[in-house]
Design a protein around this nucleic acid. Structure first.
Lengths: 257, 257
DNA sequence: TATGCCCAAATTGTATACAATCATCGCATT
DNA sequence: AATGCGATGATTGTATACAATTTGGGCATA
């Protein structure tokens, strides 16, 4: 029932859908998902994926999910379709939905896109942030530290992505924030597959400096910090092409297109 | 049956769904839309919207669309949900789908996002374009000119958006290209609502210069040209707040939240 | 004539039944 | 033992029935 034995660095144990608690409920995405039920399922699955409780490649069968959340396949399908649109899930016709497994090329492009968007976003945030925003960032940052100290790697990763999203929200560019949400989600999958370094110290340090720059209204500095932070993150990946055990021989022999 | 009497500048006559021919069939979006049927409907509706045959605010009832395309509501809903995710359609719970009507703030943000993405995209395209790409761009440009000479405003607008998308495809950044596709679609809605100038001459000229810069591999120049082209486009809009006839008094009196 | 209420028609929300497709295993064949 | 084939079970694709909700109009009332 749990199909994808992840080889990622962390101790992330892939779980089956059935092991998901029905706890998380968010759903600010009512613009595309009509019912509240679909939104709940969407939020819960996304949450599990960002947490690496569901790892890349995990199958997501419609009626299993339906059973867990007490919903019909109709509802589940809507949620899965939404996740597919955010590129967090891949749907293969007649073969169902899986948690996406970004290729190394995709991983590169995700970070390429982020390093285009985020410095600008950080600069905007620095120029617009209000005291309440700063307070929220600092509060969030403590949570991150707490998670790291508690040794909760998963939670730390999820909170880190959320930190970047928060900055985008402060920047007040709804459209860019939405794009970034998608990119941070995809980054989480990239991390699940390609992360090699477990050094979360520099990450937290970078976040701390960023908050200070934003609080001081230093746009240019915030942009620079963000730029180098992203380079750091990217350099923490091991993007050497690997056999990718299920692509198998076809790719290695590689004559057949 | 045709509900939204558009006040946009062009002679774009809003049509009912029923008047849509079932001609267009594309569907490179199989990653999120499983069946081919949904993809067809999605492509046809998107096409009609980008053409301004369906104008902002037009209702999109599920079974009417189903009748036109000979598909059940299940299929239609999948297509509508995809369009909603691309922000080209808005779905109001229990009240169905409509062609989106971007606000002036949204219009600003669309162009803000474009002017962040597109100069970089143009530069990348300039550094990577191959002869075949240039040829395709030039061919497309002639089509644009032909459309303008034939006085086919609608087609000209649609082709212009497509031109920007083509550059993104040449740049080889699939993720950015996808983001831009969404942005150009939304731009088309913005144009339908807020376009004031009918001067398509400078647009074509800008496109021509862009092609030359890209063909010559001049990244920096291509970026600059794109930047100023976007400023031109944006300045062609009339973004003064208007009563927006259906928001009505609530917003004007504006005390209630 | 203006206002409010209630009912009917239209439309969307959801579940489910059935068809189509794919995966897996066993069996026969070589 | 390895290969190929076919049947079976599991899963997705699609249509449709029914429930819930909204919309619009008619009628009574002030």
């Amino acid at each position: 029932m749990l199909l994808w034995s992840a080889e990622c660095v962390g101790g992330a144990v892939p779980v089956s859908i059935t092991d998901l608690g029905v706890n998380e409920a968010e759903g600010q995405d009512a613009r595309v998902l009509r019912g509240a039920r679909s939104s709940r399922i969407h939020a819960a699955l996304l949450d599990a994926i960002l947490d690496h409780r569901l790892t890349p490649g995990t199958r997501l069968p419609e009626d299993e999910i339906g059973t867990v959340f007490q919903a019909s396949r109709t509802i589940v399908r809507a949620a899965l379709q939404a996740l597919a649109h955010e590129r967090v899930v891949v749907i293969l016709p007649n073969r169902g939905a899986h948690v996406a497994k970004p290729t190394v090329e995709e991983a590169r492009q995700v970070f390429e896109a982020r390093s285009l968007l985020e410095p600008r976003i950080a600069a905007l945030a620095a120029s617009r942030a209000e005291p309440a925003d700063i307070a929220r960032l600092r509060a969030h940052h403590s949570e991150e530290e707490a998670a790291v100290h508690a040794g909760d790697q998963r939670r730390a990763i999820a909170l880190s992505a959320r930190f970047h999203n928060m900055i985008a929200e402060i920047a007040g560019q709804e459209i860019l924030a939405e794009f970034l949400r998608e990119l941070t989600s995809r980054s989480s999958l990239v991390v699940a597959l390609y992360w090699r370094r477990r050094d979360a110290t520099c990450e937290r340090h970078a976040h701390h400096e960023l908050i200070d720059a934003i609080a001081a209204g230093q746009s240019e500095r915030a942009a620079d910090l963000m730029r180098s932070h992203l380079v750091d993150l990217f350099s923490g990946l091991d993007l050497r092409e690997r056999p990718a055990k299920d692509v198998g021989l076809a790719a290695l022999l590689g004559t057949t297109k």
